[in-house]
Simulated scan of single mutants.
Amino acid sequence: MISRMNPSKVIGLVALAEKPGLGEALRIMRRELSRHGLGSCVIETPDALERAIGRCGMLVTFGGDGTMLTVSSLAAMHRVPLAGVNLGRLGFMTTCSVQELPLLAYALQEGSYLTDERSMLEVVRVGEDGVAAPPRKLALNEVSLIRAQSGKMVDLDAEIDGELLNRYHADGVLVSTPTGSTAYSLSAGGPLVWPMSRVVCVTPICPHSLTNRSVVLPDNMTIRLRPRERRGRFDSMVYSLDGRSAYPIEVGESLVIRKAPETLSLVHLRKQNFGALLRAKLRWQGAEIPSDDE
């Protein structure tokens, strides 16, 4: 949908990691925003982002999809739209290249940019006593429950709305959103899913059984991942959200995963053609081969 930014807010320019061309990109963006009468602030650390988010009407990240993932939860919780300037390689979620920064600044001033609402996952760790351990966490791409030690397969149960789906012996299991279908889930053999689909995918990672395949579920279902012992032994496991952080989990505990009430507003300069994006980024037949800065 077409959106307009709150004029009383500033635009947060998020630069969390040094990348080639970052300084020049920030200089261009600040110049173009100033030309259009828009205020901005440069944010270089997660702590600074926490402090600044309340006065930002939009966040613009400089990097790639990873940078956008780092700030996605905070942006969703505060209902702040998120744009991304691609300084990386793939950039499935990014809004534009450095060359298009003048166009982005113009669109922000005119309110002519588009947004789409991406679903997120809410994750709660539940103790053996059945009590949830705060805080709840959000993931844009996926939640992964994986082995903590290399060379060790793990055992876990996946339950759907309280009923057992499968008992996995694998490297782990992913629960992914449509947005995350082009990320870790794709590498694990999961399906490609149109971003606005109302589904989640449960995908085993390197399962011991060849019949264990990715399962696509309606996004109104609740998924519980429960670590298990095997032959009286528990191999340590961790869970991760969007690959950004890892938390230990013990036998008897579980992860409860459901669609979050929050959504992330992703900013686009033009209507998205997901099929064309797949052809370009995955280099399918009929696609123009993108350069490294696209």
Rank of each mutant, 00 (worst) to 15 (best):
V60H: 08
G130P: 02
Q99D: 08
G66C: 06
K152Y: 12
R89F: 06
T263G: 06
T263F: 08
D116L: 13
G63R: 09
P261S: 08
A170V: 07
G88Q: 03
G39V: 03
H268N: 06
P7I: 07
E128G: 15
L145Y: 11
M58S: 14
L26R: 11
G286S: 04
S3I: 04
V98R: 10
L69M: 11
L210F: 14
S240Y: 00
P207T: 00
I11E: 00
L165Q: 10
P261K: 14
A276Y: 03
I160V: 15
A48I: 05
S3Y: 15
N166R: 13
T67S: 14
V193D: 01
H36T: 03
E18G: 05
P218Y: 05
R198A: 10
V238K: 05
M93G: 03
E50K: 14
Y168W: 15
M1W: 09
N166F: 07
T211C: 10
V71S: 11
R283H: 11
V251E: 07
N166V: 06
E229M: 14
V215I: 15
Y106T: 04
P178M: 12
A148K: 13
L104N: 04
G127E: 02
S181T: 07
M29T: 14
G63T: 09
Y184P: 00
E294D: 10
E159I: 01
S73P: 10
S112N: 02
M196I: 12
A280G: 02
A287N: 00
Q109L: 10
M5E: 04
P207C: 02
Q272C: 06
V126N: 10
R279K: 14
T45H: 12
I146V: 15
V143N: 07
M58G: 07
V98T: 14
L277G: 01
L165G: 06
H268R: 12
H268S: 09
L22N: 05
V131F: 13
V238F: 01
N212Q: 15
T70R: 15
L82R: 00
G180C: 08
A132W: 00
L174A: 04
I146D: 09
L241Q: 00
Y113H: 15
R198G: 00
I43A: 06
G57C: 03
V124E: 15
L103Q: 08
C201V: 15
P218I: 04
G172P: 08
S209T: 13
G180A: 08
R230L: 12
H36Y: 15
A188F: 01
M120Q: 05
R35N: 04
S72D: 06
G84S: 12
I249Q: 04
V14G: 05
R198E: 13
G172H: 12
R79W: 01
Y106M: 08
I160S: 06
S144P: 05
T67W: 09
L69D: 06
E163Q: 15
G84H: 03
P20L: 12
D65W: 02
V10C: 12
L192G: 00
W194V: 12
S265P: 05
D116G: 09
T177D: 02
L164S: 11
G57K: 07
V238A: 00
G37H: 04
